Computed example of a mutant assay.
Amino acid sequence: QGAVEVAIELNSLSKTFNMAGWRVGMAVGKPEFLDAVLKVKSNMDSGMFLGIQKGAVVALALGADWFDQQYKVYSKRRELIWQLADLLGCTYDRKGVGLFVWAKLPEGSDAESLIDDWLYHYHVFITPGIIFGSNGKGYIRFSLCVTEEKIKEVIQRFAT
């Protein structure tokens, strides 16, 4: 209650609508606050490509069926990533949500050395958690934006 008097709410279509990197979102708030944002924004760039704007309009009109389908896609990918993490001897939280699975490497493992080894021997790159800050030390991060087929291929590479 009353937030519109003191705050601007920002939202992005990046993760929710698979538009990461497109830099499309919205701001809601008091008109004078939004005017100030627009003044700064108009001096930073000349606007967003019309095709991206049209894509955002379509995305915002999607119904619950689309979200249900996306949930199924990411759930299947998550299950496969868990298989891969198990294969690599990692632990992870099965209650985690989002587009990434964070996995703790076996005790005493050095993420950077492992990742180099995996890259050279299996031709697979898995993101070391440390690049996201010191709390990521000892972890790796898997993206669920990779297709099921690619995840299965990676599992196969490590399994053989």
Rank of each mutant, 00 (worst) to 15 (best):
N11T: 07
S109G: 04
Y122P: 00
I126R: 02
I130M: 11
E149I: 13
F100P: 01
E153Q: 14
L114V: 00
E153Y: 11
Q1L: 09
D117S: 12
I131Y: 00
A64T: 12
L87G: 03
F125M: 08
M19V: 03
V24L: 06
K41Y: 15
D68Y: 11
S113C: 04
E107S: 14
E148Y: 08
M26E: 07
W118Y: 12
G63F: 01
A36F: 10
K41M: 14
A56P: 02
Q70H: 10
N18D: 15
A64V: 13
V58Y: 08
W102L: 10
L114D: 01
H123P: 00
S42Q: 15
L144T: 02
S42F: 12
Q1I: 08
E9W: 09
I130Y: 12
V37H: 12
P128M: 07
I126K: 01
P106K: 09
E112S: 13
A36T: 14
K15F: 05
F100L: 13
G63N: 11
W118A: 03
D117C: 09
W82E: 05
I140T: 03
D65A: 08
I126M: 02
N11C: 06
L60H: 04
L99R: 08
L38A: 14
G47R: 01
Y71V: 07
I140K: 03
Q69W: 13
V37F: 15
Y71P: 01
R77T: 03
T127F: 03
R141C: 04
G129I: 06
Y71D: 14
L60E: 04
V4I: 10
V40Y: 11
S12R: 09
D93A: 09
D117M: 09
N18A: 12
W118R: 05
G21S: 06
Q53K: 12
K152M: 13
C90W: 01
L99C: 04
W82V: 01
F67C: 01
A111P: 04
K150Q: 15
G133R: 10
E107N: 12
I130V: 14
L119C: 06
I151W: 06
K39N: 15
K30F: 10
M48N: 04
V124G: 00
I126S: 00
R141Y: 02
V154W: 12
A85E: 02
A85L: 00
S46V: 05
A64G: 06
Q53E: 09
I52E: 07
G129L: 05
L80T: 00
M44T: 14
M26V: 06
E153F: 08
E32A: 02
P31G: 02
T160H: 14
D116Q: 15
G2A: 05
F17C: 05
A159S: 13
T16Q: 11
D65R: 10
D35A: 15
E79V: 01
L60I: 04
S143V: 05
K104T: 12
L50F: 06
S12L: 04
V28P: 01
A7N: 07
S134W: 10
W118M: 03
V101G: 05
K150D: 15
G133I: 09
K137M: 11
